[in-house]
Design a protein around this nucleic acid. Structure first.
Lengths: 196, 196
DNA sequence: ACCTGAACACCGTTCAAGT
DNA sequence: ACCTGAACACCGTTCAAGT
């Protein structure tokens, strides 16, 4: 009969030093990605966090894993926000307001629109689930607006996701056009409305 | 009194070996960029062309210089095409046909939409002139369509350039959506039309 | 004039050796 | 279990030395 372990160990409770390293990595990653975008050097992140390069890779095997850790909460918030809007606003306002907020969030980091868009091609990406939740949240608002005849029936959740990311990308690559952002947003959204 | 040079040298006629190197670099660059996109390794280009790395940099000091050499003819063709369409087609058709062709060309190489868009922020880029020609060509077609009341007056040539690039970018990052390309194109263009 | 390639300062990723 | 950093195979860019 096996001995009880002298100190009870919950496998889900990581060692204290591991947890501390993870936190440091995340803090520095948040700072560096905010500064330099999603393509920031992982070496730099490890350096600034004061951990070995291997430690970073152990905690976050891919760049997407790291980004997911940075963005997860934001995704959750945005998904919940869709349901709030659906419950409190008319269908069209709910859709447009949510899409606008999504567009802002997708531009939170330089390079993020490209990262999110590329996720569509890679279901194994750590960001895939988050993007899917965004597409589903947007899809629910879209369906409601379509049910009311406010949005063309041939617009899919994927169309919406792609175009919202594309709008974020415009100001991502050409910050000069930030002043044009709201206008471009309205222009694209008008294309979703049925021709009378 | 200075001697005449023994062989008359036109400074605009480069040395034969230089010209040959230039041609080789361009040929290999075209192939590699077609394979791997605008971010293809310049080292690889030099290697494949059989020239030293310094030779590549001498002929094309920046990546944009190289891309301009690859894309210049395409820009010229597209600018001329705008005038042909303006002369032969109704204003709206001319605009939409041209924009569609531009969108295809902007997606000629992987990564090209991002490269073109970034050019807006850098007037010193070798690609700036070509992009400007595209914006002007599109601008003329846009103005004609607006004069006929077919396109909203608050759409600018820059809006059109940005959105056309954004459409190219969608299929650039997510090839899966290529089947959706024409649909997305129509959607965005419908946003340009005046609300009745 | 033009070409070459070593040199420099970076990457991402892996993995043997340590505690 | 977890951490470290050297090792490997790449980059872009510059520039001294060659012809």
């Amino acid at each position: 009969m096996p001995l009880e372990p002298s100190t009870p160990v919950d496998p889900r409770t990581p060692r204290a030093d591991a947890q501390r390293n993870r936190d440091r990595i995340l803090a520095e990653a948040a700072a560096l990605v905010a500064e330099q975008g999603t393509q920031a050097s992982l070496r730099d992140v490890a350096r600034r966090a004061g951990v070995g390069l291997g430690t970073l890779y152990r905690h976050f095997p891919t760049r997407e894993d790291l980004l997911e850790a940075l963005l997860g909460r934001r995704f959750d918030h945005l998904a919940a926000r869709a349901d709030t809007l659906a419950a409190t606003e008319p269908a069209e306002r709910a859709l447009t307001d949510w899409l606008y907020e999504f567009t802002l969030d997708a531009g939170a980091y330089q390079g993020l629109p490209a990262t999110l868009m590329a996720t569509l091609e890679d279901p194994e990406s750590a960001l895939y689930a988050g993007c899917l939740r965004m597409r589903q949240a947007g899809g629910r608002l879209l369906a409601a607006a379509q049910r009311d005849g406010l949005i063309r029936p041939d617009v899919t959740p994927l169309d919406v996701f792609a175009l919202a990311n594309a709008l974020s990308w415009i100001t991502d690559r050409a910050p000069t056009l930030t002043e044009r952002r709201d206008h471009l947003f309205r222009l694209v959204l008008d294309g979703f409305r049925p021709r009378p």
